[in-house]
Amino acid sequence: MADPVLRLSGIRKSYQSGDSELEVLHGIDLTLQRGEFAALIGPSGSGKSTLLNLIGLLDRPSGGHLFIDGDETSTLPEGEITRLGGQRIGFVFQHHLLIPAFTALENVMMPLLVDRGRPDAAMRERAAALLAGVGLADRANHPASKLSGGQQQRVAIARALAMRPALVLADEPTGNLDTHTADDIFALLREVNQREGTSFLIVTHDPRLAARCDRIVELVDGSIVSDRPHAETPG
């Protein structure tokens, strides 16, 4: 059997606050299989974003082991970590966070561009196809800053998929959107998951949306308190 997309074992994270150390994640064990579509829920301040940043290799844990596709990451040097994160993991943030100086298409190309160093035609085609996939083919050459919130989040999703990552992390991807748009975005994530077999770990405060995932992981005060499959499995 293939390695799981993600495996965490005993992951801890502490922050230094003044003289004292504040541990916000207390030994997290979590495994995510290929194609899983999981929600990460929990009260505010429970450590969801912290955990996502660790998994996304934007930050490093204070203890424990983190495997991406079976590769241990804690021993990798800084530059490798950045590359690995960029190549294997896609990110969707709450605040869309496109780069306003670039067009929608160029934003989608960005992970490919920083990885390969310079643009090429194949990159452009892939980005155009991804934009078409999120229904924004006609907005390709719009400056990112001129798009609506929902459109920006679609661009961000297309961008997260650019490198064909095995895992996409989404931190409240619908948090800034109205209910209707949020539903659309969520449906889009689900569609990608089913079409491409990409694994998703989605932080959400919306129980309605969490209920549409295969699995719900609940974090309280830096520990996983429940991890259950959900009835509504993909069919």
């Binding site: 950045t82 992970p111 920083v114 961008r159």
Partner: peptide
């Protein structure tokens, strides 16, 4: 700062 952070999350290295 945010754009720089995003670029780093996209895999851009410190050197870039």
């Amino acid at each position: 700062a945010r754009e720089i952070g995003i670029l780093r999350a996209m895999g851009a290295t410190r050197g870039q």
